[in-house]
């Protein structure tokens, strides 16, 4: 475990060289948030009106959180990197090191996005506060719980994207899998909460990754309850466990098939 923390620390050190890129990257997040804020403002004729159980302020804070999770994740970068590593054979240079490739990739990507995540979180809160005037009513312990669920959500997202990318061991191009997954997450949980969909569909979504990677943490932030918090965290831990096992199985099967051209 210690070595993986060191990998995260090393990646953060490497990324701190580009802290201004992270801050400028926030512009994209801000524009998206601005568009969504105006969209919801238009849809809510009365700010006190409830649509599918959400007030306008709750809806806007919901997207602040889901967009942080979405924008800071760097899913495309991770997907491209792993697919290229597998296709080019670069992945092999990690095989004979004393760490697990899954653990190493998870740690490097976490280190890569952690600074971005913290910056986006702070600036996202500030933006929300400027637009909406006040935070949802949460105490400091509850905020920490939300941050923990956001962190776990990020780990699950990374593991799922890794599993989808490692399929490159078996097929020529694995990028379409990520494309479909990312669009599903974007629509079914990032822009719209689960409650916006038909009841039967909601039951399926509650057992899908969408519940743990975007909806859960955002819902907790806008409508905190300890019961939901416990359910979300347990679901997240189960998802991490399952996603990690799937990654390991794909990796172990795939690595035996690897062909590396040499000199």
């Amino acid at each position: 475990m210690k070595k993986y923390l060191f990998i995260i620390k090393t990646e953060i050190m490497s990324n701190l060289q580009y802290i201004f890129n992270v801050i400028f990257g926030y512009v994209g997040y801000f524009i998206l948030l601005f568009i969504l804020f105006n969209l919801w403002k238009y849809l809510y004729s009365d700010p006190n009106e409830l649509i599918n159980g959400y007030s306008m302020s709750q809806m806007m804070w919901y997207v602040v959180i889901t967009e942080i999770l979405w924008m800071a994740l760097g899913g495309k970068k991770l997907n491209t990197k792993i697919c290229n590593d597998v296709k080019s054979g670069n992945i092999t240079y990690n095989i004979n090191k004393p760490y697990s490739y899954i653990g190493y990739s998870l740690s490097t990507h976490l280190g890569d996005i952690l600074v971005k995540g913290v910056v986006y979180f702070l600036l996202g809160m500030l933006t929300g506060l400027i637009f909406l005037g006040k935070f949802p009513s949460l105490n400091i312990i509850q905020v920490i719980v939300v941050i923990i669920t956001m962190f776990l959500a990020t780990i699950i997202s990374i593991l799922i994207i890794m599993a989808l990318s490692l399929v490159a061991f078996f097929i020529e191009d694995a990028t379409p899998f990520y494309w479909v997954y990312s669009k599903l997450i974007l629509i079914l949980g990032t822009i719209f909460p689960i409650e916006y969909f038909p009841v039967i569909f909601q039951k399926i979504l509650n057992f899908s990754p969408i519940y743990v990677v975007s909806y859960g943490p955002a819902k907790l932030f806008v409508d905190f309850s300890w019961k939901s918090a416990v359910v979300i965290i347990i679901a997240q831990i189960i998802y991490i466990f399952i996603a990690y096992i799937i990654c390991q199985i794909i990796y172990k099967k795939g690595v035996k098939r690897i062909n590396v051209n040499g000199g």
Binding site: K2, K3, F6, I7, T10, M13, S14, N15, Q17, K97, P98, Y99
Partner: peptide
């Protein structure tokens, strides 16, 4: 090696992964 880091930091990194 990690290109954005110095050789010293890289060596420390390799030391850590080899426990």
């Amino acid at each position: 090696l990690w290109t954005h880091l110095t050789p010293y930091d890289n060596f420390k990194f390799f030391g850590a992964i080899y426990d």
